[in-house]
Design a protein around this nucleic acid. Structure first.
Lengths: 101, 101
DNA sequence: TTAACGTATAGTGATTAGATTATATGAAGT
DNA sequence: ACTTCATATAATCTAATCACTATACGTTAA
């Protein structure tokens, strides 16, 4: 195995770790779960549905975005967030299935 | 929805979060990856294959065990660790697939 | 029982993530 | 330009996690 492969392997691991760390938080996991059932949601959708302060929702969304879990596009006054990868849906159902059998 | 349902929902979320947090670490993720390709491994297998101190391997294995990612059974001098849920294999391939397309 | 091997735990300081609240920015309508 | 609504950032303090290393425990065989 060459050096360049080793480097990209640790990079992949780091990216995976960042993603997992981002999701590994009660609020953020629930946000991701919400987004597996909704194509996209804006900050106030989440802050209302989850019963948390707007600033809290915005902060957690930022963390999920920074770590490659969500993407964000602004339309007028609203910022719409959605899953960055379709596989994240599968990931969520894997985790959920670990605690229902 | 009844109170008992709400409670078990947060419990499930917490358990999922603990699992994800445990996996969300470079060494621990690699240990789990090793265990998706090997039915079971002992501490010294891991400490040798990963090139880390025995104590480090043991500590990280303990964290994975405590958080429901691995199980452990002792046979003589050796402790053998394995995945606690088969779905963890799928979880790992989901994460990996997020960074190869 | 002691020696050798495999594994587990404990202690430390440094770094990072946590919750909470106040404030700042950005867009749209009047 | 000013107001309102939607979103984002900053600041603080507390708590958890980190890496690292020394040491303790458990098992087996002589």
């Amino acid at each position: 195995m060459e050096v360049v492969d080793v480097e990209s392997k640790t990079e992949k691991i780091d990216k995976a770790v960042y993603m997992l760390k981002a999701i590994a938080h009660p609020l953020r996991l629930q946000i991701v779960e919400l987004l597996t059932g909704n194509e996209e949601l804006c900050v106030s959708d989440i802050h209302q549905q989850m019963g948390v302060e707007q600033a809290v929702a915005s902060q957690q969304l930022k963390i999920l975005k920074q770590n490659g879990v969500l993407t964000c596009k602004r339309k007028g006054k609203h910022s719409f967030y959605q899953l960055a990868h379709p596989q994240i849906k599968d990931l969520i159902s894997c985790i959920e299935s670990c605690h229902s059998c």
